[in-house]
Write a protein that binds this DNA or RNA. Structure first.
Lengths: 340, 340
DNA sequence: GTGAAAGCGCTAACAC
DNA sequence: GTGTTAGCGCTTTCAC
């Protein structure tokens, strides 16, 4: 029976029972006769019955759809997060629907505004860089949409958040540099205003403080997250009157950019100049010298966010917001080998 | 009016008109009074009315959902393809729902089997390596599910397909090697059975043939797509009695693996040994020496596939399958600089 | 140009 | 344990 899609009505007709019995049998509701149930299951299998999600969604007011809103997917971190999300969503029978903001606040806004509430059981979101639009998310939350933020989380919103330990990761990264004799440490940061950028900055500042190293404002540069930005930032740094001898980059891509800039000036990385990144993008093992970095648990960020969201969806009323902070792990490689 | 989501009924009640008029007004159906329409639009905007996709889907039998089924998302090629898909889907008002097979035929099968027909207007799919399960896709097609295959396309299925020009790309890649004095060329291929792997192999063989270079069967290795596979394949190659002096890798990740293996043996890449990849993964500019490669139009593969699918969804009856082949582009870098 | 009503496929009271 | 029925929100004949 192709084309005319088979519905529970068809099954009911064949078995000469009512649709509600079929419905119950299909869903493991216990007040149904074992025999009837088996028959239903058999016919359903034979006819290749597939439930119509629109109908169940409509009738039950729940869709088993999870929306993911994030800035990009074509980079190691985010694509790995999605892989993690996808894994638990699949296991629990949820579909994931992707919305990519391109890190544009307008796009983000338009996505949220057009979001059909009734089409999602919950939302997983990583906000974009200049998302001044906290209030749109606030609105969503007030309307009781289950929502979990990950990685790029908003500052002033009370919601569940899953992130890596950006502060301590940064702190350790900088300390690692210091322990390897690099003490003139610059920081090429991300854009201002993002929580995790600020936490990494704070970790950097506090590590310097702990080791009584004065902060040089000129050695802190805010810009984008791209490799190109890392390269440009580093060129600026190298043009400083007083040059740093190490860079803590907010992520690996910027660290890679930094290394490229350093190489162009024939500065020997790992010996004359230390570089440490953040993420543990596979590229960090491929570049030469290999890049020391703080590994982020990207996959876990995804899977845990998704679990938390599903918990929130299922518990709803009794759910309390949770903040999950996952630790990072220093991966020591050649780019920070003992300075001279 | 938060929480109780606003429906067309609410709008109708406020305006004291019928729901059908509201419905028509909202959808630009022309047989509705201008004034009425404007009023409806105004109230809808004020109330922040969002259509319930489940309801529209149920009523109209179409969902504006596109399913994407692919092996992975956490790599450059696929995540870029998705970015392309996402861009046109968004522009045309379609949502994309992600299914990741992890390159597992069982997972792929279970996804297809559980696919609720009524939940998708169409499917974009890149099959997994050992997808012997052509017939499940065949079934889908017979049931008139619009479907477009991209990149990893099945051999024996009559459907629209979008891919890069794997044959000519491979041919040119190998010729490039030859022109640069590398004539003992090995090929580290992907798994057998995948169309594009075979096309690249054929391009390799034909290029050798054209230049009257005999084929050495030992220099053709089939394995997985990962960097690790590339490394292992290369080690095997280097252990051959007669060593090749160049490698054409089925993709950049394997090429990178090859380079790593070569470096371990202190073989000078670009001079003593040529390496060329396929994809133009950004990592190819970061490794040293930089990697020559055939650039694939990943983003376009995505956007064109999606356009084709939407065309198929909207035209349906009058639609004829199309095969789109996009050209690749040689990006010459250091890893194939003139051999000695 | 607009309204009434049926129906998309399914679930969930409520009877029995 | 099973059937009947109403209804989820929307679209779409069919009247008027």
């Amino acid at each position: 029976m192709p084309h005319h899609l088979v519905t529970i009505k068809d099954i009911a007709k064949i078995l000469k029972i009512s649709v509600s019995t079929v419905s119950r049998a299909l869903r493991d509701t216990y007040d149904v006769n074992r025999e009837t149930k088996e028959k239903v299951l058999a016919v359903a299998a034979e006819l290749k019955y597939k439930p119509n999600f629109n109908a169940t969604g409509l009738a039950r007011g729940s869709t088993h759809n999870i929306g993911i809103i994030l800035p990009f997917i074509a980079n190691y971190y985010f694509s790995t997060v999605i892989t993690g999300i996808q894994e638990v969503a699949h296991a629990k029978g949820y579909n994931i629907i992707l919305f990519v903001t391109n890190d544009s606040p307008e796009r983000e806004l338009s996505i949220i505004k057009n979001l059909s509430f009734s089409s999602f059981d919950g939302l997983l979101v990583s906000i974009c860089s200049d998302s001044a639009e906290d209030n749109h998310f606030q609105q969503l939350i007030e309307d009781e949409m289950p929502i979990v933020f990950f990685d790029r989380v908003p500052k002033n919103i009370d919601a569940s958040k899953v992130m890596q330990d950006d502060y301590n990761g940064a702190f350790e990264a900088v300390e690692h540099l210091i322990q390897n004799n690099f003490t003139k440490i610059a920081h090429i940061a991300g854009p201002k205003g993002l929580t995790f950028t600020e936490k990494r900055l704070q970790g950097y500042l506090d590590a310097l403080k702990k080791h009584e190293i004065p902060v040089n404002e000129k050695w802190i540069i805010f810009s984008g997250f791209s490799q190109e930005c890392g390269e440009a930032d580093t060129s600026r740094l190298l043009a400083c009157e007083e040059r740093p001898n190490a860079i803590f980059a907010v992520n690996d891509r910027k660290a890679i950019g930094a290394m490229l800039a350093l190489k162009k000036q024939n500065i020997e990385i790992g010996k004359d100049f230390g570089v440490i990144g953040f993420t543990n993008d596979p590229v960090s093992t491929i570049i030469s010298p290999t890049l020391t970095t703080m590994a982020e648990p990207a996959y876990d960020i995804g899977s845990i966010s998704c679990e938390l969201l599903i918990k929130q969806i299922t518990k709803k009323k009794y759910f309390h917001n949770e903040d999950v902070v996952l630790t990072c792990k220093l991966i020591s490689r050649e780019s920070t080998m003992r300075g001279k």
